[in-house]
């Protein structure tokens, strides 16, 4: 724990190490687009919940204070899912050729 122990970390050293790792990093070029997953999941959920809302019994609607909550939530989730898929379509990510390879 003394300052003359053989290794004392400096700012330059850490910066150099991280910069070197950044040049080899694969996240930017290989990671999938999350918008596709959010869009897909919410479209599936939206369809399931909307259909449930359409076929809901009187009892289910009465429980939710007279609101067809499945229908409204389903439509909302569907809209969010579609929003993400449209966004993905309109503004696809251009893979940054960040460094070598």
């Amino acid at each position: 724990m003394s300052e003359n122990s053989e290794h004392h970390y400096t700012e330059d050293e850490i910066a150099r190490e991280v910069t070197e790792l950044e040049t080899r990093s694969a996240t930017a070029s290989r990671i999938f687009d999350l918008r596709r997953i959010i869009g897909g999941l919410f479209v599936v959920y939206g369809v399931i919940v909307t259909i449930t809302g359409i076929t809901d019994s009187r009892a289910a609607i009465d429980k939710a204070q007279g609101v067809n909550i499945n229908l409204w939530t389903g439509i909302g989730m569907l809209a969010l899912g579609v929003f993400f898929l449209v966004w993905l379509k309109l503004r696809p990510v251009t893979v940054p050729q960040r460094r070598e390879d």
Binding site: L21, E22, R24, S25, A26, T27, A28, R30, I31, R98
Partner: peptide, 14 residues
């Protein structure tokens, strides 16, 4: 997407 320790611990800062 995990190639380096920076990818694993910090998403490659990207």
């Amino acid at each position: 997407s995990v190639k380096t320790s920076l990818d694993f611990f910090l998403s490659g800062r990207s």
